[in-house]
Simulated assay, not measured.
Amino acid sequence: MRFQHSTDVRAAFPGLVAGVVVATGVTPRVDAQPQVADFSARARARLAGGAEAGLAEIQAWRRAYAALGLKPTQYRCAAEALLRRLRIDGELPRLHPLVDLCNAVSAAYAIPVAALDLDRVSGNLTVRHAIGDEEYVTFAGDVERPQPGEITFVDAAGRAHARRWTNRQSGWSAVRPQTSNVLIVAEALHDTAAADVPRLVDELSAELTALWSAPVTRTVLDGEAPGCEVPTAAGGLTRQR
């Protein structure tokens, strides 16, 4: 399968940098809490300097949401929502070791990180503007239709795997106890994204390898290489122009 950002999305957000990680052999039977605690501590250290809304990474997403006609304080990117919860509640939610790790990494870097069950994605996956006929399944099992023009992750079956780009993932492809193969996508728009996203990808990949001893492949996408071929078996990710 191919993962990519559409030409229109790239044109609207030329500074977009995306990290892509694929891991196989994931199970819920690992203890990721020491790693989660470390990344959460890093996030708290950043929050000690001020609320999450003041971080450059979050400000960039707020500008993007405003450009899309969304109220940034009504619809927050996933990283901002996690940081806000960490600041108010003191902890991040516990769901699945992989999800917990990705959430903690997202909070530490203030960069949205999505983890999808790769076996629940049909064919190619494109981050593009919605037409309005895509099908999005909530975590409660309800079906929604993204608004026309809304940015979402759409597969070959017309299923939307996100709402409002990095605001909310789909329950259809959410990581669950049976999940084995995952596609992880980190997206950033801020000025130093070209340096920060590769660091996030490298650090997350190292933790995945250490925790699960799982085959992990990774790459970074930008305007010069907006897509990559995702292996269906163990193998490398190939950037494509």
Rank of each mutant, 00 (worst) to 15 (best):
Ala108Leu: 13
Ala108Glu: 14
Ala108Thr: 13
Tyr109Asp: 11
Tyr109Pro: 05
Tyr109Trp: 10
Tyr109Ile: 05
Ile111Asn: 06
Ile111His: 06
Ile111Tyr: 09
Ile111Thr: 14
Pro112Lys: 09
Pro112Thr: 11
Pro112Arg: 08
Val113Phe: 02
Ala114Phe: 12
Ala115Asn: 10
Ala115Asp: 09
Leu116Trp: 14
Asp117Ile: 01
Asp117Ser: 04
Asp119Val: 07
Asp119Ala: 14
Arg120Val: 00
Val121Lys: 00
Ser122Tyr: 01
Gly123Arg: 10
Asn124Ala: 15
Leu125Trp: 01
Thr126Gln: 13
Thr126Arg: 08
Val127Ile: 09
Arg128Thr: 14
Arg128Ala: 14
His129Thr: 13
His129Leu: 12
Ala130Ile: 06
Ile131Ser: 14
Ile131His: 13
Gly132Trp: 01
Asp133Trp: 01
Asp133Ser: 10
Glu134Asp: 11
Glu134Ile: 00
Glu134Gly: 06
Glu135Met: 05
Glu135Arg: 11
Tyr136Ile: 05
Tyr136Arg: 02
Tyr136Ser: 03
Val137Pro: 03
Thr138Tyr: 06
Thr138Gly: 10
Thr138Ser: 15
Phe139Val: 04
Phe139Cys: 02
Ala140Ser: 15
Ala140Asn: 12
Gly141Trp: 01
Gly141Ala: 08
Gly141Cys: 08
Gly141Gln: 08
Asp142Gly: 06
Asp142Tyr: 06
Val143Leu: 12
Glu144Phe: 14
Arg145Thr: 05
Arg145Val: 00
Arg145Tyr: 00
Pro146Tyr: 00
Pro146Asp: 03
Gln147Cys: 08
Pro148Cys: 07
Pro148Leu: 05
Pro148Gln: 09
Gly149Cys: 03
Glu150Cys: 04
Glu150Asn: 08
Ile151His: 09
Ile151Trp: 05
Thr152Asp: 06
Phe153Asp: 10
Phe153Gly: 03
Val154Asp: 07
Asp155Pro: 13
Asp155Ile: 11
Asp155Thr: 14
Asp155Arg: 09
Ala156Ile: 09
Ala157Leu: 02
Ala157Met: 02
Ala157Cys: 10
Ala157Thr: 06
Gly158His: 01
Arg159Ile: 03
Ala160Lys: 01
Ala160Asp: 04
His161Asp: 12
Ala162Arg: 03
Arg163Ala: 02
Arg163Cys: 07
Arg164Asp: 05
Arg164Tyr: 02
Arg164Gln: 13
Trp165Tyr: 15
Trp165Gly: 04
Trp165Asp: 07
